[in-house]
């Protein structure tokens, strides 16, 4: 395919993906706004007011970046895993597989759907958060870079999950048993400084630690880990996820017999 034809194929996939989640906005966009409002109200407002400061800022300010990032992670992941598995389930993925669309365009198309949903939800949740706390962004460049990299990373993870999933139950296992625990243990609600040394060290293996802390640095200017190192880790995870997803598409794993 010529670069122009690839561009059309990519636009087609992006349009399709964005229309899919905006058509069912009450299932894809609204729940995050409601859930995060409750988090802000309960953890930030009710409980947070009794906790006091954490990491040098009010508890409410401390949890906001983590909660926004949690929404981005779950939405970018959920979008791609549901869309790709749905296409596998009703065999419409064959429309793409029989076409000359290159694998990197298929990947970019699905990932762009996840990234756009992640970013849209980030905007919605940030607007909701601004009702509870005054947000003064420390570094817009860091915020945008972390949001973009994170949504790409978890969109890719969603696609990998969808490739291996055989049933709709399989696309819920990873978010429920892996993603949610890692998010909660990734320092959304607490500073790693509160952990005993052993558990603080174990937490370094959790990719969500880097995502949450890099974003918190972008918003508040505070972080439990070095921001440069955090970017390096997120970037490394993204490269590995991209390589593996591309490998799965190239070999046709679980897509071609």
């Amino acid at each position: 395919m010529s670069p122009y034809e690839q561009y059309i194929a990519l636009l087609t996939l992006m349009r399709k993906e964005i229309r899919r989640y905006t058509r069912i906005w009450s299932q894809t966009l609204l729940p995050s706004a409601i859930t995060m409002s409750l988090y802000f109200l309960i953890f930030g407002g009710l409980i947070g007011s009794r906790i006091g400061e954490m990491g040098g800022v009010s508890y409410m300010e401390f949890v906001v970046p983590g909660l926004i990032m949690m929404a981005i992670v779950t939405n970018s992941y959920a979008n791609v895993v549901a869309s790709f598995f749905g296409a596998k389930f009703n065999n419409s993925i064959e429309e793409l597989l029989v076409s000359p669309t290159p694998n990197h365009i298929i990947l970019l198309g699905f990932v762009s759907g996840g990234v756009s949903r992640g970013m849209l939800v980030a905007v919605i949740v940030t607007l909701v958060a601004s009702l509870f706390v005054d947000l003064n962004i420390h570094s817009y460049a860091v915020v945008v870079a972390v949001v973009a990299l994170t949504s790409v990373l978890f969109s890719l993870c969603g696609l990998i999950n969808a490739v291996f999933a055989n049933t709709f139950d399989d696309i819920n296992i990873v978010p429920t048993f892996v993603l949610t625990p890692l998010t909660y243990l990734g320092g959304v609600f607490y500073s790693l400084e509160l952990l005993p040394e052993f558990w603080a060290t174990v937490s370094q293996a959790n990719p969500l630690v880097y995502v949450v802390n890099a974003f918190r640095f972008g918003v508040l200017g505070v972080s439990d880990v070095s921001v440069g190192f955090a970017f390096g880790m997120i970037g490394a995870f993204t490269v590995v996820a991209y390589w593996y997803a591309a490998h799965l598409l190239r070999t046709g794993t679980r897509l071609r017999t």
Binding site: M1, S2, Y4, E5, Q6, I8, A9, L11, T12, L13, R15, K16, G86, A87, N90, N91, S92, E94, E95, L96, S99, P100, T101
Partner: peptide, 25 residues
Amino acid sequence: PQEFNFNVFETVEDILIHQAGYYGI
């Protein structure tokens, strides 16, 4: 193909637009 392999929630027009797009049309 022998089996239906399109997204039944899409319209006829969208199914065709998407397929054309995948061929760079």
